[in-house]
Design a protein around this nucleic acid. Structure first.
Lengths: 186, 186
DNA sequence: GCTTGCATGTAACCGGTTACATGATTGT
DNA sequence: ACAATCATGTAACCGGTTACATGCAAGC
């Protein structure tokens, strides 16, 4: 999904400023979507030009004029159309797996380091998601996204924990057998 | 990882043409990295200019002159440097979860359809990965990437299967309770 | 005869990231 | 004083995707 659509989705949860939209991404959406100011503000501008969002300026705040955006009826029905027709795709890219794929080109220590780093990252992400889960009152759909995310992350963590010893051992074996013929690592 | 790096990695498995590099992505890397011709050929050109790859032209093929690329020593050590210093990051984006997050704005039927589509996609991906796993002889690292991918995909599939009935029921309940006060879906 | 696969490449486009520019307020 | 948070926005840059352009060979 592009940033304009993400903004429509964020605003469907209630009116918000560009800044607050980003905050909203960072709490609720965090583990499956994100956007920076550099794409949010232009998106909001474009959505305004298309009449899909409107804003009111809040002056009682001491800060530079805060623009509080909300969906117009047109924006509402646009979001509805998107929700009704969008295909539920997923995109995954992993430098972690690329590195492991190339494990035969590294030392066993480096491989172990990569596995450890990845496991640690997953542990942190699990902890983070758990805290979100506890914080808010959520719809069934929202709760599902968190539970699903937790299931996925825990499974990947478990996969590493389960397989790492065998991998490291096999890796060491592969390395020593090829090192008999060729040179060691630089 | 950018496409040039991906090409270096692909060529570390043995010399190949641009076309074959893409094929290589599609078999071995498929579930965690990808690149199109529109980025592979320019990448190869740039790598050649930097002296990281070299090519020989194959004339015995009947097709337009096939360029078979291979890593130069410089390319080899560049890849080594990348492998030694790269951080094992992962990127995940899901329109599927965004849709489920917004489930309160759809009918229960639509939500069920989304869940079903996602489950089916995961089943197909699992089957595909399983066939790769059986096909080739792989290093321990390569086998890990497949096993890890399978663990992850199976876990996500199981998560959906486990939670979908409860989700659908809760969703229906939320909908009917709010529909008492507001209008139904269009 | 037609589609699929092999094979290379360019150019326009699009969208997101990064860096920059500004500035008040609140808490330490 | 100083850092962090609130708050908005632009412009350059970068890299990947899409569409296009070309052409032979093999199988159906």
């Amino acid at each position: 999904m592009d940033t304009p659509t993400l903004c429509l989705a964020a605003l469907a949860l209630g009116e918000a400023s560009g800044y607050e939209i980003k905050k909203r991404f960072e709490s609720a959406f965090r583990h499956f979507q994100h956007a920076g100011y550099g794409s949010i503000y232009p998106a909001l501008k474009r959505l305004g030009a298309e009449g899909l969002v409107a804003f009111r300026e809040e002056q009682d705040t001491p800060h530079p004029a805060k623009k509080v955006f909300s969906l117009t009826p047109a924006g509402d029905s646009r979001l509805q159309t998107i929700l009704d027709n969008a295909e539920p795709s997923e995109k995954y890219r992993s430098d972690f797996l690329l590195l492991v794929f190339m494990a035969h080109l590294m030392s066993t220590e480096r491989l172990a380091q990569i596995l450890d780093a990845q496991a640690q990252r997953l542990r942190a992400e699990v902890a983070e998601l758990e805290s979100i889960s506890a914080e808010h009152e959520l719809t069934a759909g929202m709760q599902f996204t968190i539970d699903f995310g937790l299931d996925a992350k825990r499974a990947r963590l478990a996969s590493i924990e389960k397989r790492q010893d065998a991998l490291l051992e096999a890796h060491r074996a592969e390395r020593t057998s090829t090192d008999e013929a060729s040179h060691g690592s630089p």
